[in-house]
Amino acid sequence: MDHEYEGRDLTGTVLRIEKSSIYDGDGLRTVVFMKGCPLRCKWCSTPEGMHSNIETTKDGKITYGSVMTVEEVMEEVRKDIPFYFHSGGGMTVSGGEMLFQPEFVAALVKEACKEGINTAVETSFYSSWKRIEPIISCLNTAFVDLKLMDSSKHREFTGVRNEIILNNIKKAGNLDLPNFKLIIRRPLIPGVNDSEEDLEELGQFLEKLPRVHHLQLLPYHRYGTDTYRKLGIDYELKDMKTPSDQHMQWCQSITNKYVKTII
């Protein structure tokens, strides 16, 4: 059957589409990774998603990204519908930063929603609200990274200030959309954003937002370092270690005072 809808032929640069992920929302999910990101987090595990252009590794063996239409992405997403059914899964748009290509993502999310597919995004919310709103209006779940509360420190570690982000989270956190779930994520980077003070501040900020479903703490990991090597990019946090389970639980105990926290 032909699917006719607005934005069907819009094109975007897609990093890759992963199938049956169990880490990006409820159930088994098809994750659409978009290319391009305005942030430059020093711990980024997907450096191949940073730039909006199509890139190739130094040895020429791997090409990152391809230009696809919304409908071409939908064709891939629809293939996995049988798996969404029993798992409660669906489509997750991730990045890079999906808000780097907002019209494309809005069209994609709208169409998936119209076809009865559960939708989620993973984002930093570093964009204007008018770009976020059309996406959120038909979205089931937003996972929003809140990496640091202090704006200058935020700029030091991610390249940008965080006022826009905090404002957007406040707006989203006060929305009255019945099917919308807002989940805040904090990647715990040892010595950067995991002190008692960091976590107290985070908890107090989220406590005031009624729509925040829960906070998820993610341990720093080094899985992306191999990609840095392939792309010939320097990885700054060479000696950083993954936080222990014990430390994760300690962090959880702090934020749990203010907002339901899972690890």
Binding site: I22, G27, L28, P82, F83, F85, H86, S87
Partner: peptide
């Protein structure tokens, strides 16, 4: 437990397909 759920999802989907 989630792992067992994943297995069950696979088996149910097998039947759906």
């Amino acid at each position: 437990d989630q792992g067992l759920n994943n297995m069950m999802v696979m088996l149910k989907t097998q039947c759906t397909l």
